[in-house]
Design a protein around this nucleic acid. Structure first.
Lengths: 263, 263
DNA sequence: CGGCTTCGTGCCGCTTTTTGCATCTTTCAG
DNA sequence: CTGAAAGATGCAAAAAGCGGCACGAAGCCG
């Protein structure tokens, strides 16, 4: 959903969007929202107070944060959210533009894929399968026909479930596009993430989907996480916020991976 | 459809168009519709109220939005959360006191069970299995060893997943206590909830657990929801905030169900 | 056919909600 | 300790909503 749409919205809808925005970005400031929605800071403050009262977000000095993020404010997850937030937002918008109405999407964990989910408001009739518990909450309801959550053990830092993947796939699902956020990408090791269970899961996801989009912000270029997922060629498309270093760019080209740099 | 066609339409057709318009745009304002259909704002308001009553859209100040679109307090779920807040909090504290360290808990959907999860901070080494996506977020991390989320289709109003239950149970899990929030409890029909899928799921949960605690606030006494779960005797314990009416109390006693009234 | 009811509609006065502004207080960082 | 930013509070105007009322069209029935 483009941000110009946020002006001239009804009060109730505006608050709903606001909650979605907070959950997608992790944090927002009052002045930021004021200019985004084109309303006075007082109204923003009242909105935030109103929503905080109902536990939909947590109020802080200067703005608000997602309610879940406050208790774990110093976790790496929340930190990452803040640090790379504009890069992620740009990637998210670019990816949302590459999705068509009616597609079936497989979405894995990570703050980038979560931001994408929040940007899918312009789409319709999507079917979503995800192991990312934040996704159902930030997904605009009017965008999707059905949402399926993959069961499994819950990992608090990443707000995802792991495991049981093979079951979900054994049930026989057909997926158009996998949206995969990864922990690292390099010419030597390919794609990688933080845990072995997640790596196995992601590899399965890629195998299941007809098309795989890998989403990485530039901070992950040339960086390898703990567990390897597979070679670069597993991805059909890589969406990022800056041009990768020459070595990685060359490796992507050689693997025939389309590179999309979000404007 | 061109917008000039919208004038001089019969009331019924006009309302149908109106719903279509709301779904397409996500939001509409009263004045906008007034000029579009060439009718007074009063009629528009009446139309919107009429349609909102049927759940075809959600009424807001100044217009209406697509029904699923309000993440905020207007959903029945959040409404219940607010309305019965103190009662739920009392029940939650009472239940938390009845749980021991190291137990394995099965927690279903509902605002009451969610409140319980938030109160479990004093416990340690719990293992939690749930289909309630809000539970992992409100559960104090230090209280639990592991959290498992049951997969399935996501229901936005209740923030739960449904389905796939049998799989989770087929995997062979052993559960000490099931914490079950229900939609209704009465002497005649026993326990009931809003959807058939959930009723089946809850019945399976009860079957799996050694001990079943049913959590109900007093607003549900004598009230039957749509789908029956089973007789009162399925519960080992009922925790509530007020003494039930004599008829229900007698039925509980006859079924040998322990009754706990939260102070 | 004529009287009757019902429904949809528009209008009027009054209440409620929302919003922006001004003023005073609190919080936070250097 | 101090100044700037953020927040709280009170207030007034505009917009929206609510309830009652009247009028006309359509349908019902003797």
């Amino acid at each position: 959903m483009s941000e110009t749409d946020l002006r001239d919205t009804l009060p109730a809808k505006r608050r709903a969007e606001l909650v979605r925005l907070v959950r997608a970005r992790g944090q927002v400031t009052v002045t930021e929202l004021s200019s985004l929605f084109d309303i006075s800071v007082d109204t923003v403050r009242r909105d935030l107070d109103h929503l905080a009262e109902r536990g939909l977000l947590a109020r802080t000095h200067g703005g608000a944060v997602a309610s879940g993020d406050l208790v774990t404010q110093d976790t790496p997850f929340a930190e990452r959210l803040v640090r790379q937030k504009t890069a992620k937002a740009r990637i998210a918008r670019a990816v949302a533009g590459l999705i068509s109405d009616g597609e079936t999407l497989l979405i894995n964990g990570g703050s980038t894929t979560r931001a994408v989910a929040a940007e899918l408001g312009a789409r319709r009739n999507l079917t979503i399968v995800t192991n990312n518990l934040a996704v159902p909450q930030v997904l605009p309801a009017e965008a999707c026909r059905d949402i399926y959550v993959m069961g499994g053990q819950y990992r608090n830092e990443a707000q995802v479930t792991v495991g049981e993947v093979r079951f979900a796939f054994a049930a026989g699902i057909n997926v158009d596009t996998a949206l995969i956020g990864v922990g690292g990408i390099s010419a030597e090791r390919g794609l990688s993430t933080t845990s072995i269970a997640e790596a196995v899961m992601i590899a399965d996801m890629i195998k299941t989907a007809k098309r795989t989009m890998v989403l990485v912000d530039s901070s992950k270029f040339g960086h390898d996480s703990f567990a390897d997922i597979g070679p670069l060629s597993h991805a059909h498309m890589v969406v990022t916020d800056e041009l990768p270093p020459p070595e990685l760019a060359a490796a992507l080209a050689e693997s025939k991976v389309d590179l999309v740099v979000a404007p």
